[in-house]
Design a protein around this nucleic acid. Structure first.
Lengths: 232, 232
DNA sequence: ATCTTGAAAAATGAATACAATTTGCTACGC
DNA sequence: GCGTAGCAAATTGTATTCATTTTTCAAGAT
């Protein structure tokens, strides 16, 4: 009775959801625009059936707006959406922090600390892109340490919607410095395994992210093709 | 340019997702069992295409397990899932409470208070079913007052997964009394518009719900057809 | 008796075909 | 010139068909 992994490839509709999701994140499919059903079928060399299944799923995720008889459009992130989403993200990040504090091993903490100080270097040198990368890694490690797949899924879903706004955060120096300081507080709270304090820091951190993102959207920054959305 | 509502009926796949979702909640489709594709098509008098679109969506929601080439099965709620889901629900409820405190009008508060005292009567009389109904209404009013659709959606999704476990909570008298006491704390925090305190109460309240539900699952209660899942 | 083996039947995955709706465009009226 | 009616093309919704995989089950081997 071997069950050594399924040698079967994933169903088409799954692969398609993943690929179209990436097309949205990468900006290949632009917000507000119609998703060309036939074009995508030709491009992927498949029929409409599995493609449409994928569209339904992405619609349910909030990445597409499905207009009856009028096709699917890439959802656009409105400023109100940002105000809605970030508080929820904040509450979930706070929970992730609390759980992480309980379960974090010394080794994991050491890894986060290493990432943190590396990030501090990039902050000092004003290197935004690597700073963002490490920032994201730290948050992911906290989420992993929380060891709650349901929580991770919910956050992934919300992150996806935020990524609908494709921009490079235009942080003021002051806000960047503040973010870095918040990260120092995070590290301290983690080291002390002080879940309540970490939760608090993370909530404030997310509130500041909200402001950064809103400003970026308001300024109508970017939409440059291919660039991922980054923010802190 | 009238846009006075769309006179077009909802697409089939949407209606189907709703109906199948209800079939799962009502217990007509039992956890772990295969979802009979052809049977449902015959029953609804439709073809497989829209039905399968609905299944993909419900799979993505976590209500169905989609096994490649082996059909869809109604997801079963494992004890570990309960441990995962309730902390997330707790964090979200806490946020809902905080937001509600900020936005609640005097009128809305009065309505909640009325529901609360009505619920207290049912508690005193040991009338479980109406107690549950009012309990749910109160939580819904808080969620409405929070005025955050994204938050509401996330909570609805998690509630759905909890409802996979169809049982009638087998609360001990002690736990029921405790729940009622927590509701009194909630009302007090709401009246004082003390968001932090309400958040705290709600988190503890959800933690107790988690225990109640886990116990019910462990005891293998119910699965009686048609009865909705209730708990507090 | 229990365990394979191997079709036949059933179910699923994907493609194609058909129906209904929307969109685009042209021609016409005012 | 502007707006509108109406038809053709394109697009979407649904059904049907075909291909592939899984399941079932009975016959045969050990």
């Amino acid at each position: 009775m071997n069950q050594i992994a399924a040698p079967v490839r994933a169903p088409l509709h799954e692969e398609l959801t993943a690929r179209i999701r990436e097309m949205i994140f990468s900006g290949e499919l632009v917000g507000g625009e119609r998703v060309p059903e036939q074009k995508l079928c030709d491009r992927f060399g498949i029929s409409r059936t599995p493609l449409r299944e994928a569209l339904k799923v992405l619609g349910n995720e909030g990445l597409l707006d499905l207009l009856p008889n009028r096709g699917a459009r890439v959802a656009v992130l409105k400023p109100e959406d940002v105000d809605e989403i970030f508080p929820v993200m904040g509450a979930l990040e706070a929970l992730a922090g609390e759980l992480a504090c309980r379960r974090l091993t010394e080794t994991e903490f050491a890894e986060i600390r290493a990432l943190h100080y590396q990030m501090a270097v990039h902050h000092a040198k004003r290197e935004l892109t690597p700073y963002f990368r490490l920032n994201q890694q730290i948050h992911e490690m906290i989420l992993d340490a929380a060891a709650n797949p349901t929580l991770a899924n919910q956050m992934r879903s919300l992150s996806g919607r935020i990524r609908l706004a494709r921009f490079r955060a235009n942080m003021t120096q002051a806000r960047w410095d503040q973010a870095m300081k918040e990260h120092e507080d995070m590290l301290a709270a983690l080291e002390a395994r002080d879940g309540a304090r970490l939760a608090d820091v993370l909530k404030r951190h997310l509130e500041n992210k909200r402001l950064t993102v809103k400003q970026a959207i308001a300024e109508g920054v970017a939409e440059r093709g291919g660039e991922p959305a980054v923010y802190d």
